[in-house]
Simulated assay, not measured.
Amino acid sequence: MSRTVIVTDSTSDIPAALIEQHGIVVVPLRVLFGNESYSDGTEITASQFYKRLVESPQLPTTSQPSPADFVAAYERIFEQHPGCYILSMHLSSALSGTYQAARLATDLMEGDHEERVQVWDSKSASYGFGMFVVHAAKLAAEGKSLEEIVASTEELRSKRALYFLVDTLEYLQKGGRIGKASAVVGTLLNIKPILSIDAEGVIYSVDKVRGRKKATARMIQLFQQDLSGVTKIKVAVGTTADPASVQDFLEQLSSVFTIEETLFSDIGAVVGTHVGPGTIAAYIWPA
């Protein structure tokens, strides 16, 4: 049976050790601070990015890979693994043109290579889809077919719940997602927005709670509603700051669920540009 190679982009925020362990190919986006351009995750780390973000008077911008970048990545894989298939898994098409660039790349492939690449819209962001990439890579290593990998990953997507807790309204305001007046009032009232991503891959506001502790408690209530009847879970936590800042959340979570596995991920530059430092993202699915 032909091997399947898993490709993703840098917004999947997969820890480097897992990328190496599972042989995942990552095509990076770029982050721009004025005229300075950095390859996301390689030329600028998450910690370096957030330091620059806080110091910068304006939001940085990001640029997606070009179709040519994906063609180059795919062709390298076909050279290394003749006859393989490629599953290319990307940031929600509602949030970025990265998925579309990968789709366009397949039209530029020669021979039967176009038919050997499947591009998959995660309809999610950060490790919210990085977990799907890792899951797919594990199945590929077991020798599962491309069709089996996609079916299993879509089943996992249907079971997973996710919420982001934003610590400050400053970056949502800078990015134009909320008005300046709302940001000022919200900051004065210590409002913490809870965000999620809908079935079409669009970020939306779920609730707004005063104070961080109440906000994390509200997140856990939401997870209980989404995972009704589930007692044992796996959890991945993405942060834009010190991972130690999520310990209170995990302690609250463990009081209502049995946590079988915990993974930490750094929220990268693309999502971080809009949510800012101090954000917690939690991704939970049945164990």
Rank of each mutant, 00 (worst) to 15 (best):
T8D: 04
H274V: 01
G276V: 08
P60S: 08
F78A: 05
T98V: 05
S66H: 02
K232Q: 14
V27Y: 13
K208V: 01
G34P: 04
G97K: 02
G41A: 13
A140R: 10
E115Q: 15
Y283D: 11
V5S: 06
A183P: 00
D121A: 11
H22A: 04
L29I: 03
R76H: 12
I267Y: 04
R3Q: 15
F264T: 13
F49G: 07
E148Q: 15
L108H: 08
S93D: 12
F49S: 08
H90F: 10
R160H: 07
K180D: 11
K123W: 03
D198Q: 09
S228G: 09
V275Q: 00
Q224C: 06
P15C: 05
A16V: 11
I19K: 14
P193W: 01
V166S: 02
E251F: 14
E147T: 12
L250Y: 10
D242Y: 13
G201T: 05
L29T: 06
A269E: 03
A137W: 06
D112N: 14
E20D: 15
T216C: 11
G34R: 07
M219V: 06
G179K: 06
A68N: 12
E115S: 14
I197E: 01
A94W: 01
M219H: 01
P28F: 04
Q221M: 08
S182C: 02
S122M: 09
S37C: 09
V134S: 04
T239H: 14
L172M: 13
T187Y: 12
T240V: 04
T153W: 05
